[in-house]
Design a protein around this nucleic acid. Structure first.
Lengths: 196, 196
DNA sequence: TCGTTTATACAGTTCAAACTGTACAAACAG
DNA sequence: CTGTTTGTACAGTTTGAACTGTATAAACGA
């Protein structure tokens, strides 16, 4: 009496799939999203076909409002796209399946926003200190104190500048290829042509 | 009557500094830490000298317990180090000042943990489906369904593998140098030797 | 040994994020 | 135009994270 026969095959596949979805979603907090939103992305990713808000609500047993807001969040992160199918009035959503693209977009959207804002604030502060340094009444110890801060501000600006160039590199597809090449080099086999 | 004279110079410097700390801390949520913890890091970074829990408590007007737990969080992220000074009984903490290192460590610590756990879960699922595919009773449509999931699992494993190689690259210092070089190329001036 | 100082464990409180149900607005069918 | 369907704004509730004060453990000095 094999247990496997007592359960529908599709049920087994579903159980396995849910474990993966859970795993993916639990760790999607690195993208700054809640586990529920992660689970929604996983569901969309494995469903293959686009889903309506009602499909999601049904699948995850959650409110339609939650589905609406969650899917918006995912769209802002470029992880989900709205698609159109003729004859269907409801909005349809589909998972963006290219995880390399998602990774890249994340840095472009979130990190660049941060570096831009911070650079601006630090640059502003640097200007103000430069202005202050023109004051001839400053004692030598005061000058040194201000200089220490200015050095730090310059360091921060350099750092954010470096980050932005890293993101350029990441987006350029060049980095993708270099890492791919390094993966192949890591293998012990010579790069024999084994067909696509 | 110049306003600048009505305020101590050090006060002005402090005000400017606080703006920068606020800016840095507000955006440190990308590392998954709360604004308060970010502010603590910023305070330590600009203070230069190591601080005790009581110093921090005084500076940020928060409870000593918060300082204790926050500083632990920062240490786990390799953003703060405990240091020793002879003659001082209290624990001293100092900001890790190398932001490139912090960036790199973040991926090593957080992202690698995630990729390792997920890869394991997905590999397990892949094995189970492989096992299931041996069942001769499966219909053709069932096989196709399972195959679709298996393809996705393989894709995920490839992706995490690629990420890990990217992190290797990042840690190797090689990527750091390449991006540095690209920054210089971006400048319009030829690479004339302008001294250190 | 005892008294003192410092860091943290723990329980309680506060506050913000996540989620739900309802009520409304926009789009469409007739 | 009226009735229907779909998505979202909003208010209320629940849950968990952040923070505090107190109590305790660990380290040290005498």
């Amino acid at each position: 009496m094999k247990l496997v026969n007592e359960m529908e095959h599709s049920e087994i596949v579903d159980t396995i799939r849910e474990r993966v979805i859970e795993s993916v979603s639990q760790n999607m907090y690195l993208y700054g999203v809640s586990p529920s939103i992660g689970r929604l992305y996983g569901t969309l990713f494995f469903n293959g076909k686009p889903m309506t808000l009602d499909d999601m609500k049904e699948e995850l047993k959650m409110s339609k409002t939650s589905m609406s807001t969650s899917v918006r969040t995912l769209m802002e992160l470029n992880m989900v796209e709205r698609v159109w199918r003729k004859g269907i009035r409801k909005d349809l959503y589909e998972a963006q399946g290219d995880w390399y693209q998602i990774f890249t977009d994340f840095f472009s959207n979130q990190w660049r926003k941060v570096t831009a804002m911070n650079t601006k604030a630090v640059q502003q502060s640097l200007n103000e200190l430069t202005q202050l340094m023109r004051n001839p009444e400053l004692s030598e110890t005061e000058r040194e104190l201000i200089q220490a801060d200015m050095d730090k501000y310059r360091y921060i600006i350099d750092y954010y500048n470096w980050l932005n160039h890293l993101f350029d590199f990441l987006e350029s597809d060049e980095l993708f290829q270099i890492v791919k090449k390094k993966m192949d080099q890591g293998k012990s086999e010579p790069p024999a042509d084994l067909g696509s």
